[in-house]
């Protein structure tokens, strides 16, 4: 007796193998759920979710709408990465600045910067040159109405072979008129598992 594979069975097998087979390099949605989840570092989706949560909290508080001038001038103060991995904190702060600028309630000043350094030195120099040419050198510079500070912390623990790591994103907004913190937000992202994975 001769046994031959049913054509539909073969087709089904081929499709399944193609589905489950090796993964060629491909582009994925940077804001999707099919991203690598690492147990030992902050992933892009962690920055994304932290920045969205913090900005939402800040907007919901309504504090930006209460600024005496609109849009208010914002400056970025000290940002501390206190995790075990080195990364550029702009991965967080740039997202926050983009989202805040989109609200139309704030603009980021380049007239002053933390430690005397600004992100765009040419903007600062041009601003100062224009003030000089306009005879405004003796008038106060455009000081920020608000400053932002942030800190990223890490908390790692394990049980047997299961590891757990939490990244804690803390942020504060200070009103420079009063020197008081007028908003604070915190977002904790916790990951648990034995090894890195794809998808969440």
């Amino acid at each position: 007796m001769t046994t031959s594979a049913h054509p539909s069975l073969l087709a089904a097998l081929c499709t399944l193998i193609a589905t489950l087979g090796c993964r060629p390099t491909q582009y994925v949605d940077s804001k999707g759920t099919n991203l690598v989840v690492s147990m030992n570092q902050v992933n892009i989706q962690d920055f994304e979710q932290a920045s969205e949560a913090l900005v939402t909290s800040m907007i919901d508080s309504g504090v930006l709408a209460k600024a005496p001038r609109q849009p208010a001038a914002l400056a970025i103060s000290r940002i501390i990465n206190d995790t075990s991995r080195q990364f550029d904190t702009d991965q967080l702060m740039k997202k926050i600045r983009i989202a805040l600028l989109q609200t139309g309630k704030v603009q980021v000043t380049q007239a002053v910067g933390f430690g005397g350094k600004v992100e765009d030195p040419m903007a600062k120099e041009t601003y100062e040159a224009k003030r000089f040419l306009d005879g405004k050198s003796q008038t106060p510079v455009d000081l920020p109405d608000f400053t932002i500070t942030a800190k990223i912390l890490e908390n790692a623990t394990s049980a047997g072979s299961t590891k757990q790591i939490s990244y804690i994103f803390q942020m504060s907004l200070a009103d420079t008129a009063s020197g008081r913190l007028v908003w604070e937000g915190e977002k904790t992202i916790t990951k648990q598992g034995e090894k890195n994975a794809i998808g969440f």
Partner: peptide, 12 residues
Amino acid sequence: ISDTNYPWNSSA
């Protein structure tokens, strides 16, 4: 609303 955590993507 999506359900994208496919079983075949569960480990890297």
